[in-house]
Design a protein around this nucleic acid. Structure first.
Lengths: 190, 190
DNA sequence: ACCTGAACACCGTTCAAGT
DNA sequence: ACCTGAACACCGTTCAAGT
């Protein structure tokens, strides 16, 4: 029985949101989960809206921990793309919340800056770099969204043999790897 | 004072959802808007969940009206990409609803089939076609999501001069046009 | 076949009251 | 400084009752 604090409230709320979705998070259920009166929560986090804001802030803070790894330019760009992809997929409900609140640009700012830095080091600058950054981020987002789609309805895959014979197409994970590598290579060639 | 029917209920619900978001649609507000008792709605649409399902179904039906235009292969592929992009952006709240319900693959099936058909006519088949279809759709989705992001917080654009000097980068619309043209051309080259 | 009001269980939030 | 229960306005849904 840990004592109540803003942090544990946010912790438990985050878990509940990622398990059942935002609309399933009620202040009363959260209070029950915490073993506390509903109104105690209000003292620590203000209200429901402020609580959701706290989840968003935590996610944004987490994005600032992105560190490129690898020695070559393409390895470093690829590592950024992979990390963003992984984070977007890890907490989709909170990401949706960030989106609804119009804070997605803020969320992606660190990744954007990291990509721009690596491109600059590779000699790609100006509008060419701007285009490259967008291309990579847009693709990462498209995959993060669509992979969830295809996974959740396995019967209706985005690519069925009914459409092009050929047997099993590669899974979303391999497709992401291949497409991102291709894109990064193309971007580095100018 | 039109008589109540399933269709007008769905019409008004759709308008309210796109204006204020799903969470702002309450059965009671909808009833007030329709000038009718709350419980009347239940007779026509079942319940709130079934009503949201009806919005999703309407959106999916709308996607079946996609018709490629143009004579060359790249013009026809581009027209499909543009149409999907436009529809995704026209009703973002309903699209989010489609996504939450795991019906996005169903939503995109017509577009996917249309793309595959055009590629086939251009001599691109099998896994190569599967990859091309995914690439185009993922990019369209990434743009549809991110354009809304960048538009809603103009102060925090995805590309600031602070990052690469150069003055104003091209807007999202031009970037989408350019990126999609580039991608389609690349895909057609194999 | 269609519409209604009453009723129930739930919700977010405020506030006065406790320690 | 922190927690509580009572109270208020709202919500989705059911149901018996009307026409």
């Amino acid at each position: 029985m840990t004592t109540l604090s803003r942090d544990v409230v946010v912790d438990v709320a985050l878990r509940m949101v990622e398990e059942d979705g935002v609309e399933q998070l009620s202040m009363r259920k959260l209070a029950a989960e915490l073993g506390v009166a509903v109104t105690s929560i209000y003292w620590h986090v203000g209200n429901r809206d402020a609580l959701l804001d706290a989840l968003v802030e935590r996610e944004i803070a987490d994005m600032h921990t992105i560190r490129p790894t690898g020695k070559t330019a393409d390895a470093r760009l690829l590592s950024i793309a992979r990390t963003v992809h992984k984070r977007l997929r890890a907490r989709p409900h909170v990401i949706a919340l960030v989106n609804e609140r119009g804070l997605a640009p803020v969320l992606l700012l660190p990744a954007q800056a990291a990509l721009a830095r690596e491109l600059d080091a590779a000699g790609i600058k100006g509008s060419e770099a701007a285009f490259a950054v967008r291309s990579i981020l847009y693709q990462v987002i498209g995959y993060a969204v669509l992979e969830r789609w295809t996974e959740r309805s396995p019967a209706k895959q985005m690519s069925g043999e009914d459409l092009w014979g050929q047997g099993e197409p590669p899974g979303p994970a391999e497709t992401f790897e291949f497409a991102t590598k291709t894109l990064v290579a193309a971007v580095l060639l100018g």
